[in-house]
Amino acid sequence: MTSPTDLVGLLAVLGAVFVLLGSLGIVKLSSYLLRLHAATKASTLGVGAILLASALHFSAREGGASLIEVLAAILLFATVPVSAQMLARAALHMHPHLGPPPPDGKSRQTEPGDDGERSQAMGTRRRSAGSEGQSTPYP
């Protein structure tokens, strides 16, 4: 038989363990993108569990649902992936060798942002429309 207090404690410890796993991944993993992955996923799940524990605790204490935790959870789940993607794009801009190599085997010369991808796609289209010998850029 589990009372709400036991459930709150269990959820809080579970969330704290996931937060610890995210920070452990930041310290132990080898590449920057691996660290970003570990921190974002684990911290989001851990804070989600802790916020659920808080919502359960205050709902049981005051009778009636407490909804400000849901607001914080929505805010956090919407903002953490955005900041992680901005950090990943900044890292790929400063260290282009972190990303995967382009499919034709040449070294990456353009910026891996929206402008770079667009110019790369336009170059591919122009090369395939030119039909000078090699018409297929992807063998």
């Binding site: 404690g9 809080a12 410890v13 610890l20 930041i26």
Partner: peptide
């Protein structure tokens, strides 16, 4: 249980 969770989160902050 809440105190244990606070200790674990503090350890995570030290690692970060």
């Amino acid at each position: 249980m809440i105190a244990i969770a606070m200790f674990i989160t503090g350890a995570a902050m030290v690692l970060a």
